[in-house]
Structure formats: structure tokens, C-alpha cells
Design a protein around this nucleic acid. Structure first.
Lengths: 162, 162
DNA sequence: ATATTAAGGATAAATAATATCCCTATTATA
DNA sequence: TATAATAGGGATATTATTTATCCTTAATAT
């Protein structure tokens, strides 16, 4: 059970968009080059972000993506769910209903204990992701990235941003 | 990103094994029938539990599986990891190293902020699963299963347990 | 001896993830 | 107004993973 790599891509792309000055857009092409990713497939991940309302887009030369909200308002969970979907990691197939001892007319009400416990763990995961925003990420990245590299990267980005 | 259905199967099978009297074994065949599962494939899940040391096995007629520890000593995490493996849900491919602004000689030390955050969420998930044991599950199941059904089920099981 | 079991190897089928290609409508800019 | 660059999205291909099935082997209770 592994998240799609598009989740990683989307998170890193959002980190860059967080640092973009107000009103500027960055294209799929630039984001793909910056991260060494296949442009066409990265595009699908960015489309997911767009459909989820996390980014705004504009067409034409100098078009691309920008955050639709302030970095402090976009959580990791928003991004993960936009790309990965909102389905829980544990799917209950209700195999208890196959029990040969079960009366024909019996009907379980509510999910079984196994599912409830697994879903609580899912919720703990979500809750953690909900507690971290893009501004938290930005703060961590600024602290751990050499100043020159950070500066060079955004110079590179701004040279390509519409 | 969805857990294999073998995880669900293993959890339900362990719930049954938890209720088995000391020293008795239950076969794959019985567990498969009880849950309406393909015997050969369920067998792979049970083998995983065996390899992880969660269950004991014995061969021959009246052979099968029993818990290797008391239900209070087996956590959901033990079972999930036995079947699903211990890999984290988020895999970091270190795409930051593709940054064209990165000096050739530069070498990142340690995982990036994105990975650290995602791994914290993974750890929250694990921590929740680690906090629930098979005896917790048994308590919940006893409470929510009609007494007659519970009784009939274990009569059925004991009629097949070696 | 015989029937039954777990273990595990080999292989097949179905599903999901990872791409690639191409067409359309939009838009900045020359 | 023409041109080039862009996002959106449909169709399709490739690869990996999940879900099985089948078969052989060694152990064991009866």
C-alpha cells in the first residue's frame, strides 16, 4: 500500500507555488523541469489540484498555476486527497456476512469492529495531515535549504513565471 | 492507495483464533469457509502471519493455526504489517535532487521536509494500530454480535478445530 | 497405509499506477 | 490579426501490483 508518486510531485509543486509572488503563474513545463518529472503525467496531478480548487490556472503563454488560497490555508490533507482521492485505506468487504451460521434474515447494522478500528487509524493519519499547511512546509524548507540554493531556485522560477 | 484485502481477512481470522480454546488448531479450510474466502489465497495470508511469528501451525488432519501469543499481546499493527509489509505509505524519491539549480557537488543530508511530514502521518497511523490488540477486538465483537450467533459460530468452529 | 494438513513455487488473470500522444479552446504578445 | 504557448482532457499503451489457481513436498493424526 503505497501512495502514488503524484502525491509527492503535487506536494513539491505546491511548495514552489507557495513561494510565488502574488499574481504570477508557473507552467507545468517549468514545474516538470524543476523536479525532473514527465510533463504530461505531472499535468494530470496538477489538473487534480485544479479540480479540487487548490490552484488557479490561466491559459496562453505566461499561463500556468498559482495557489488559489494563502499557503496557511492549504493543508497536506487537501493536497493528498486531491491527488489520491478521499477513499479510506481500509475497505471493508463485510466478509462477516458470509458466516454460514448467520440466519438468512439477519442483517448487520453498521460497520464491523475491524473496520471501525482500521478507520480510526485512517482518521489519525488524516488528522496529522490536516494539521500541517503549506506555510509550515515553507518554513521548514527555508530553514533546511542552503540560502544560495533557495535564492537561485526562485530566481530560476521567476525567470519562467508568467 | 488501498490495503490488500488479505489484511481484512487476516484480522477476521485472528479474531476467530482469539476465541479458540488453548491448544486447539483451526485449518485454512475452516477459516475460508467461515468467511467465504478462496482457500488457496487465504492460505498465503495465514502463511504471512506464521512467518511473522503471530501464529503457530501444525500439520496433518486436525492441523491448522492457533495464536502464538495471548490475544492481548497481538496488536492490529502486528497483523497489518505481517500481511502488508512494513514499508511506509509515502515513498520519497528525492525529486529535489533534480533541481537544475543544485550545484553538482551538493549532497542533501537527511530526508526532505515533505517526506518527514508524510512519515509523521504514517507514524500516527501505526501508533493507533499499535494501541489496539486482539483482546480489544474480541471485547467489541462480543458486545455487538447477537449472543446466539456468537455461540453458533464458535460451535461451528469447535466442530472443525483439531 | 491413508487422508489431511501447511509451506511454498510457478503461473495466470484482473486491476491499478505510470506514462505518452494528440486534439481543443483560451490567451498573451508580436 | 496571426502565432505560439498554455491547461484540459480523451484515448491508449506500458508496467507493477493484487488477486487468485494449481501443483508438489513434507509432516502428522488416525
Amino acid at each position: 500500500m503505497i501512495l502514488k508518486s503524484q502525491v509527492e510531485w503535487a506536494l513539491h509543486c505546491c511548495a514552489i507555488l507557495s513561494g510565488l509572488p502574488e499574481g504570477r503563474y508557473l507552467s507545468t513545463k517549468a514545474l516538470a523541469e524543476l523536479h525532473g518529472l514527465p510533463k504530461e503525467y505531472l499535468s494530470k496531478a496538477l489538473q487534480s489540484l485544479s479540480q479540487a480548487g487548490l490552484v488557479d490556472t490561466t491559459l496562453g503563454p505566461s499561463g500556468g498555476y498559482r495557489l488559489a488560497k494563502s499557503p496557511g490555508q492549504v493543508t497536506f490533507l487537501d493536497i493528498v486527497e486531491a491527488v489520491e482521492g478521499e477513499t479510506r485505506t481500509f475497505v471493508c468487504n463485510n466478509i462477516r456476512t458470509n458466516n454460514p451460521c448467520l440466519p438468512d434474515d439477519y442483517c448487520y447494522s453498521g460497520p464491523c469492529a475491524v473496520a471501525r478500528i482500521m478507520w480510526e487509524a485512517d482518521e489519525a493519519w488524516r488528522e496529522k495531515l490536516r494539521s500541517v499547511t503549506l506555510s509550515d512546509l515553507e518554513r521548514m524548507l527555508v530553514r533546511e535549504t542552503p540560502a544560495k540554493l533557495w535564492k537561485d531556485t526562485f530566481a530560476w522560477v521567476l525567470g519562467r513565471a508568467g
